[in-house]
Design a protein around this nucleic acid. Structure first.
Length: 801
RNA sequence: GCGGGUGUGGCGGAAUUGGCAGACGCGCCAGACUUAGGAUCUGGUGUCCUCGACGUGCAGGUUCAAGUCCUGUCACCCGCACCA
């Protein structure tokens, strides 16, 4: 028969599906809904990556299976199109980022369609479309209204040569990515979203969702909740207190000094009482110059300066202790000040050793002359706490004492910081705020949204860390919506994470001009039933979007509190050399090349077969060929079709077993073993030399989520029907086993023979059969059987002496 | 340092959760068909010498039985990182 012509046949079915709107999700179908979501791509100029194919092929298989199972499936796609690379390309080519974006989206679209993904193309979302970012701005204003938006100063990476603020990614190693000059830390006033207000809700919400355990762990870690105590230390002759945060109030008797961050306000406030103020300022300036690189590389070497003129008093012991500044304490966590317990904290220990400060043991168990002891043990040198052995009890009692003395209270801290929400770039959503000299920060009225990006000639970065929008007078100068006076627009744009924080809501109702989506659509489709994406997005993107969603839930805009019922992540595809694919290593595989040579079905089967879906696996051209062979064998089975509306008797159990295996494995994302099971089935059928129609149709339906084009074609040829309109195949647990089975017989744990017994054989019969078998009987002669074990359907083991 | 993960043939990986280790695929070897084979088909393929022994990073342990459970240990990968 003719060879499988994938070019013709794949485009034939892609056209058919499109013309018949096979994958369009309809809100009023009467079927149960299923919302499968994949992370929408950033449309880069390089085009699609094989990683995208793997990321989408997983839920693509699930979606196709769900449709055959009778669900109304929403499987959408869109583009997260704002961002720096596009802007840089535009600058380089001297064209507008809009043009670059449109060009890249067109490229991605054609590539995705070529692979035959069953996306609902009528719901495509583009974050840079004004009908979309209108609602991104709308949500921002709602947050502004509810007090979740604020301005604050922060240190940013600044390149003095390019005069531009850089992200951490663009300033790796303390050098500017563009001109390679040294980055300095610069204070700048920027926008923040108060995500920390939602820290507890984000943490608690994890209890009600089905995320992979490691994903939950990463989110918990990112939020980083810790419980402890705030304690106020009186600062002598300054008339104020120094507030610290500690997770170990039980070690308060071991405090021998205090450390505050170099930027701590108490220094400036009391500069008149400090005799070495110049030294402190020098140190502070030195720290500001330190790059991220130096701070992390020089972790072990503690530096600092003692504050001369101020001392603190331990509120529990009354002891007077010195105060130091050091950059190992940061202003951004806790209160920017700590009580140092060198005996039981490695950082404090290093610092104390270097500065010759006392080290007092308060917990027994270590040797503090050698190193800090951070384990548990009996408390000593600790007044009323002495003798307590259990850490929890000790903390409890210490909190009691602190409360009694009125010098502190229980407290909670998070590692998660408020979300710095701005970029000084053109290609992003304008922040819809007006700065009025009279009224301060004023929201752009809702009816004026979208606040459009001005169409300008020159969108290169501004100077002194300003956005390019700052140069455009017609954009900047405006009237205050509140008082009508002259005012200036905010010129920063939103970060890339903004548009992706709610795109899954827009898919539910992508063309709505009255709301971000209609309440009916949201009620019908939410929550997302299954969300799959990369491990690199499980903290930032997922926490940001859960935060936005929870906010929208609180103001009544969405009907459920958690956006994603289930979240999984796929592993990377590595280069053929086993290293992460990168242009510089020249090990990048272009999915187009694979489609050109082998076809879309082969590519899809391979990315799912290459290994455990959740694990990284290297690309292998040879193995791609193996998948090609497999599909070719499925194709050539057409020559061996015989009539039959039911499975042949000898095929019943293997058919049912395979259907069970494939059905279950798709749900568990074990696509590799699902495909392996179908390969085994092909081997069985090849050995038989024939396949009947019932068997073939079942195989085609099982395979269709992976290789939809070929299976549609064959299905139509052998049955005259459309596979996509059929139902998913079912199995009967009782028919999965044969009536007789072969099991192994062990003697003293070693396999010595095998017997064939009825599947429902009882223990006595099985053991008897084992003992009587030709291979086993001789081994038992002259021996005593001490124990007989029979595991039903698996094994007989005879322990003999 | 903290959190997560992974170690199984020449390679990618299976193993119903304590029950025949190496499914399935690649590669390799042999054969068939061929003018030809980098196409296809058939058979073989964990290691070691002959009987039967050894084999899941390493060392112990529990068990009739361990890749799987326990104790210790090593290596690699990813994320966060002076988080008080």
């Amino acid at each position: 028969m003719e060879r499988y012509d994938f070019q013709t046949i794949e485009s034939k079915w892609q056209k058919y599906w499109e013309e018949h709107e096979c994958f369009k999700a309809k809100a009023d179908s009467g079927k149960p809904k299923y919302y499968a979501l994949v992370e929408f791509p950033y449309p880069s100029g390089a085009g699609m990556h094989v990683g995208h194919i793997k990321a989408y092929s997983g839920l693509e298989a699930v979606s196709r299976k769900r449709r055959l199972e009778g669900y109304n499936v929403l499987f959408p796609i869109g583009f997260d199109a704002y961002g720096l690379p596009t802007e840089n390309t535009a600058i380089k080519e001297g064209i507008h980022p809009r043009q670059v974006t449109d060009r890249n989206i067109a490229k991605f679209t054609s590539q995705l369609k070529r692979v035959g993904f069953s996306f609902d193309w009528s719901r495509v979302v583009d974050t840079t479309d004004e009908n979309y970012y209108k609602w991104t701005q709308w949500i921002f204003l709602k947050m502004f209204e509810k007090g979740l938006v604020f301005r604050d100063k922060t240190l940013v990476n600044y390149c003095p040569s390019c005069k531009v603020v850089l992200s951490n990614e663009d300033s790796q190693g303390g050098k500017c990515d563009v001109c390679h000059s040294d980055i300095v830390q610069k204070t700048k006033e920027v926008w923040y979203l108060r995500i920390t207000e939602y820290a507890d809700k984000l943490l608690e919400g994890l209890a009600e969702v089905d995320y992979l355990p490691n994903i939950k762990a990463q989110q918990e870690n990112w939020i980083g909740r810790s419980t402890g105590a705030f304690v106020n230390f009186e600062v002598k002759n300054a008339g104020e207190t120094l507030r610290i945060y500690t997770t170990r109030p039980d070690t308060i008797y071991g405090v021998t000094f205090m450390v505050i961050a170099p930027e701590h306000p108490i220094i400036e406030k009391n500069s008149d009482k400090i005799s070495n103020i110049a030294a402190l300022e020098d140190y502070k300036a030195e720290c500001a110059k330190k790059t991220e690189f130096e701070r992390t590389q020089l972790v072990k070497d503690k530096t600092g300066v003692k504050i001369e003129g101020l001392t603190a008093v331990n509120p529990v012991t009354g002891k007077e202790i010195p105060i130091y500044i050091s950059d190992y304490v940061m202003m951004g966590y806790g209160t920017g000040a700590i009580m140092a317990v060198p005996a039981h904290d490695t950082r404090d220990y290093d610092f104390a050793k270097k500065f010759g400060i006392d080290i007092i043991e308060v917990i027994k168990g270590g040797d503090i002359s050698k190193e800090a002891y951070t384990g548990e043990g009996e408390l000593v040198n600790s007044g009323e706490l002495n003798g307590i052995k259990n850490k929890k009890d000790a903390i409890e009692k210490a909190l009691e004492i602190i409360a009694q003395k009125g010098c502190g209270e229980k407290g909670v801290q998070y590692k998660m910081k408020d979300w710095a929400f701005n970029r000084q770039r053109y290609w992003g959503e304008p922040i819809p705020i007006v700065h009025c000299p009279e009224c301060g920060m004023v929201a752009v009225p809702y009816e004026e949204l979208p606040l459009r990006l001005p169409p300008v000639e020159n969108f290169e970065p501004g100077s002194d860390g300003e956005s390019p929008l700052a140069k455009i007078d017609s954009f900047v100068n405006c009237t205050c919506p509140k008082c009508g006076g002259a005012a200036k627009r905010e010129t920063d744009t939103m970060p890339q994470w903004a548009g992706s924080s709610w795109y899954f809501l827009r898919y539910c109702d992508p063309c709505n001009s009255e709301a971000l989506a209609s309440p009916e659509a949201l009620k019908y489709w939410l929550p997302v039933d299954w969300y799959n994406g990369g491990m690199e997005h499980v903290t930032r993107h997922m926490i940001y979007s859960r935060f936005w969603h929870k906010f929208l839930y609180d103001i009544g805009e969405v009907p459920v509190s958690e956006p994603y019922a289930k979240r999984t992540a796929q592993g990377l595809i590595l280069g053929p050399d086993g290293k992460k694919m990168s242009k510089s290593l020249g090990n990048v595989i272009d999915p187009n090349d694979v489609v050109d040579v082998y076809g879309a079905d082969v590519l899809r089967v391979y990315v799912l077969f290459m290994g455990d879906y959740e694990q990284a696996a290297p690309w292998s051209e040879e193995s791609v060929k193996g998948c090609k062979r497999f599909l070719d064998r499925v194709w050539s089975l057409q020559e061996k079709v015989i009539p039959g509306d039911e499975y042949r008797p000898e095929m019943v159990s293997v058919m049912h077993r395979t259907v069970k295996k494939v059905s279950e494995d798709i749900e568990r994302m074990k696509f590799n073993t699902a495909i392996a099971a179908m390969m085994s089935l092909i081997n069985v059928l090849s050995d038989k030399g024939s396949v009947n129609r019932a068997e073939y149709e079942t195989l085609l339906i099982m395979l269709s989520p992976f290789a939809p084009h070929m299976t549609e074609e064959i299905y139509q040829r052998i049955s005259g029907k459309i596979l996509n309109e059929q139902s998913w195949v079912t199995y009967d647990e009782a028919l999965c086993v044969d009536s007789t089975i072969e099991i192994a017989v062990q003697v003293n744990g070693k396999v010595r023979g095998r017997i064939t017994i009825p599947a429902d054989c009882n223990e006595a019969d099985a053991v008897a059969a084992a003992k009587a078998s030709d291979e086993i009987a001789p081994l038992l002669e002259g021996k005593t059987i001490v124990k007989e074990i029979y595991v039903k359907g698996r094994i007989v083991n005879l322990a003999v002496k």
